[in-house]
């Protein structure tokens, strides 16, 4: 299992389009990816749940990656966060 934390810098937070892009990124891997804000954690394949977290600029999320390709997935997804969020 791999985890990393990331603080959102995008002024609008994880809104629909980046959430959609994130789901597409996560789909590239077989690992299970969850995104947590505080106590609430959701499967990163679930677009609407992800949007439902209402993650805003300045908030920190904890991303957990677990599965066969977790190393590659964690690296890829972390890079995605840095580039897009």
């Amino acid at each position: 299992m791999k985890t990393f934390e990331y603080t959102i810098t995008d002024p609008v937070g994880i809104h629909a389009r980046p959430a959609g892009l994130l789901v597409k990124e996560v789909k590239k891997y077989t690992s299970t990816v969850t995104v947590a804000k505080g106590e609430k954690a959701v499967n990163a394949l679930k677009l609407m749940a992800l949007m439902g977290l209402g993650i805003k600029q300045g908030e920190t999320v904890k991303v957990t990656v677990e599965g066969a390709d977790e190393d590659a997935a964690a690296a890829g997804i972390e890079a995605f966060f840095k580039a897009n969020l």
Partner: peptide, 16 residues
């Protein structure tokens, strides 16, 4: 195109 792709993801959203 992304708007429609986001709609696609909503249509197949697991919770939905």
């Amino acid at each position: 195109a992304l708007l429609f792709e986001t709609h696609q993801l909503m249509a197949e959203d697991l919770d939905y």
